[in-house]
Amino acid sequence: MENAIETVSLVKRYGARRALDGLSLAVPRYAVLGLVGPNGAGKTTWMMSVAGLLHLHGGTVNLLGGGPFDPAVHSGRVTLLPQDSELPLESRPVDLLTHYGLLQGLTRREAERSAASMLQEVHLGDRLAATVRSLSHGMRKRVMIAQCFIGFPELVLLDEPLSGLDPRETAHMRAFLTRRRGRQTLVISSHNLHDIEVMCDRVAFIEKGRTVRNATLDEIIGASNMLLYRVTAAPADLAPLSAAVPDATLAYDAVNGLLCCRYDPRRDTPEQINARVLPPLLAQCGVIDVSRGDSLEAAYLRTAGDMQKI
C-alpha cells in the first residue's frame, strides 16, 4: 500500500535532549493512525516536523510522495491541528476559515461554502459572527478542528483533537473523525486510548523519540487471534480447557480476572474457540464477558513493559 507519510530516522534535538531519536514511521494512505506514547515521547515534535513547523537535525520526510513539507506542493493537501496554539482572538471563525481556504487555493465561493459547512459540522453554525475571543475553550477547539478539514485535504494531522471538549461534543467529534476513515489519511495523537481505539485502524507506539510499534489496531490488540474471558473466579484447573483447544495457548491474568486464549485464526474461528472453551470453563466458574482481543490500554502497557507494575 502506498504511504501518505514516510519518515525515516528523524532526529530533533533541543539542546542535549533528543526529542526525536531516529524515529521512523510510515503511515499508509487512507489510514487513521493513532499516535500513543507518554508525555515527552516525541509525538507532537514528530507532527510539527512533518508539517514543516520544526527544523529537523536529521532524517528524511516524504509526504504524499512529494518529499518533505513544502507549502508550494502540500498547501491544501496537508493540514494540522497544533497543540496549545491559539487562533487569532479578534478574528471571526467564518472569516478565518474562509481565509485559510483561500490560502489553500480554493476559490472564494468554495472557501466560504467550505467554511460555513465545516462550522455547521462542528456545531458552531450559530456563532459564525462571533469573535474567537468570545468563544469558550471547547468552541475554540472545534474551530481548530474545523480548520483542518477545509477543502478536504488528503492528510490531516491532529494533536489531541478531543481534549477540552464536553462529553457530547467528544462523542460527536469522535464520530465525525471516524467517518473520515478510508477517505482521508488522519494521524491522531491522544492520551485517551479509548478514543484512539474507536477512531483508528492503525496505532503507533512512540517512546523516547522512537517508534516502538506500528501496526493495525487488530494486530496490536489481538482482535483476530485472541479471546478474553472475564471470569468471576480463577479457574481451578486449566487442563480440561487446554484439552478442548489443543492448538491454542491459555493464560490466566489473576490481577484483572481474565482468561486469555490465543489461537491461530487460520485454523479456528472465534465462534469455534468459544464453543469449545466455554463449556469446561463454565463448569468451573462464571463468565461475565467475552471479548475479541485486549483493550488498547492493556496492549500499550504490555508493550511498554509496564504490565507487571500495575
Binding site: G52, L53, P71, G76, T79, S85, L87, Y100, L103
Partner: peptide, 8 residues
C-alpha cells in the same frame, strides 16, 4: 502555526 502550512 495555522497559516504557515498553507502558505510559505
Amino acid at each position: 502555526r495555522y497559516v504557515i502550512f498553507r502558505t510559505s
